[in-house]
Design a protein around this nucleic acid. Structure first.
Lengths: 129, 129, 129, 129
DNA sequence: GTGGTCTAGACCACT
DNA sequence: GTGGTCTAGACCACG
């Protein structure tokens, strides 16, 4: 039932942000393999977005194979393919890491410095978990 | 001299990307403290964008205090305030790190795992899927 | 409804004057808390300016937190934050007063003289030279 | 010899601001009737502006009759006409007052409130004298 | 030649 | 139909 903590900014398309957050939720196991999703309408209202927007995001995730629509019953489910989930998780991890390293090295941080910084870094310095 | 290697994608507004790339260039020292920038028109043509787009980005950087205009028509310069430059570099580093850590922890990586991953990560891995 | 009486001079940028007049209208309550604004195009045509010019002014007011955009395409509204509106009103009052007092004292009026002048002053004197 | 405290912003033309400040200085008596002005070059360097800019401002003040150029000696002087100076002072006062009152009433302050506000207002709340 | 503003008009993504 | 971005090109005041 794990309901997601949605949060959006106005910088990028909402549906893009929904995709990202759902992809994360699936990769993290917050949404379990095979789990049934709420209806588009319900998810939309929970996220405070237009149903069309939610629909668009889900369609994209379906295209990525992370969720599927059951033929008869008509509900949407997280993929049963545990491998796919794991692969998504590693994919996300590599994307994040590559982007992070590149950005940091561009402003003159060596890998050693980056790791040192990371060790001493406390989330919550400006965020809340 | 220090002419920037511009590169844009279609995901986000160009002017936003210009801001980011200039912010990085300033933070990295690629653009030096007090250095004079090329004219709006020249920078625009170098980056392959419309002068108005470049103008908008520069105006924003000016609002951030990273560059300034001399006497309204004397050209634009990187701020003389070395502290501001350093602060920007650390600000960028913190932003990157916070976003990275948050994203990684959200998909279930502990700090230890993150650091291990980072140590073994070689930029350029992007190609061996 | 509350359609604003626009009036511009050539001394300063139009977008600046739009900002000022909207700020005043918000501070005075002529535009109510939470009220929906007309579309950018409509406001532009009402004010007799190019939509881009109006857009620029509204973007700035948004940066100031006096208006906001609903879901990127839902139209623009005056902030719901009544406190912000009140604060803006007092801010304007202070700005006006400070500038006025400073200018008057610079040309040798004491506070007493200023107040006496003010008491005897009738708007509309502009015409009897 | 009274040397003026110049201060400029980038919002409006520099020469306009020079005119204003000189007009104020004359109206306040900071620059005395008949006093000789420094050379354009000197005034410009003191103010940190381009000589052309200072020249333009002085030409305008000359057009207004507030300063004049001596035929032979070639120096510039403040007008000898004390009445003109007084008139300028009152003109400035009326301009300031009218603009102030109008702006304040537009945001809903009655004359009584304005005067009360003025009495309790201390310059230096955000300025320095 | 510099930055700044403005207009005109097109295009886009989102709801 | 909404806000947002971008281009193109013109014009202006300033230095």
């Amino acid at each position: 039932m794990a309901s997601i903590k949605w949060s959006f900014d106005n910088e990028r398309p909402i549906y893009t942000q929904i995709i990202e957050q759902l992809r994360q939720a699936i990769a993290s196991g917050e949404l379990c393999v095979g789990e049934r999703l709420a209806s588009v309408r319900d998810m939309a209202s929970e996220a405070g977005v237009n149903p069309n927007t939610m629909q668009r995001a889900l369609a994209e995730l379906e295209r990525l194979g992370l969720i599927y629509t059951a033929n008869r019953t008509g509900g949407r489910f997280i993929t049963e393919d545990g491998g796919k989930v794991k692969a998504t998780r590693m994919e996300l991890a590599r994307e994040n890491t590559a982007a992070f390293l590149e950005a940091m090295e561009k402003i003159g941080f060596s890998k050693g410095e980056i790791i040192r910084l990371l060790e001493n870094f406390n989330l919550g310095d400006d965020n809340n978990e």
